[in-house]
């Protein structure tokens, strides 16, 4: 039995200047940056592009040092699962340390971080339609 992963939901590229890195990818690869936001809580600057089912998330610190060389690295990935509670239970039963699913920045989604046992890949799980979407009529 697995975790019920349906696809790679997003891939995170971390840097010291998410706006500059996102712009380079947009200019060089013809990728459209669809959304920019500040992450609640950490104030991290985020930019998002989507290539079919996979979102590229460009993440950086709140403050950019203009004189600093822009450096980025491919960080980790988030897998979409059908049932995050079941996936978390499954992994915990196998000895993994997994955070409790919490509300994600994506509307209606819950996310949980898997700590270790992933061949060095920072790794999280996300389930969409896991929570009521605020402001949506029922």
């Amino acid at each position: 039995m697995g975790i019920g992963a349906t696809h790679i939901d997003h891939i995170v590229i971390s840097s010291n200047n998410s706006g500059a890195v996102a712009q380079t990818f947009a200019d060089n690869l013809g990728i459209e940056i669809k959304r920019k936001m500040i992450r609640p809580g950490t104030s991290a600057q985020l930019a998002f592009a989507k290539l079919q089912e996979v979102v590229l998330e460009f993440a950086g610190p709140p403050e950019v040092k203009p004189d600093e060389e822009v450096k980025a690295k491919l960080w980790g990935m988030v897998l979409a699962v059908e049932d995050i509670d079941a996936a978390v239970s499954e992994l915990r039963a196998k000895g993994y340390t997994v955070g409790d699913p919490t509300k994600a920045v994506q509307p209606g989604a819950k996310i949980a971080t898997v700590k270790g046992g992933t061949s060095g890949v920072p790794f999280a799980l996300i389930q969409y339609n896991a929570l009521p979407i605020e402001g949506a009529s029922s």
């Binding site: 019920g4 992963a5 891939i11 996979v54 590229l56 993994y96 992933t118 061949s119 060095g120």
Partner: peptide, 24 residues
């Protein structure tokens, strides 16, 4: 499209076993 993400591992068989057994 994102074709694939490359992951460097120390031992291929061990990594494949982990991802098969634990993640399906």
């Amino acid at each position: 499209r994102i074709d694939h993400i490359g992951i460097v591992v120390k031992d291929l068989d061990t990594a494949l076993g982990t991802y098969a057994r634990n993640f399906g």
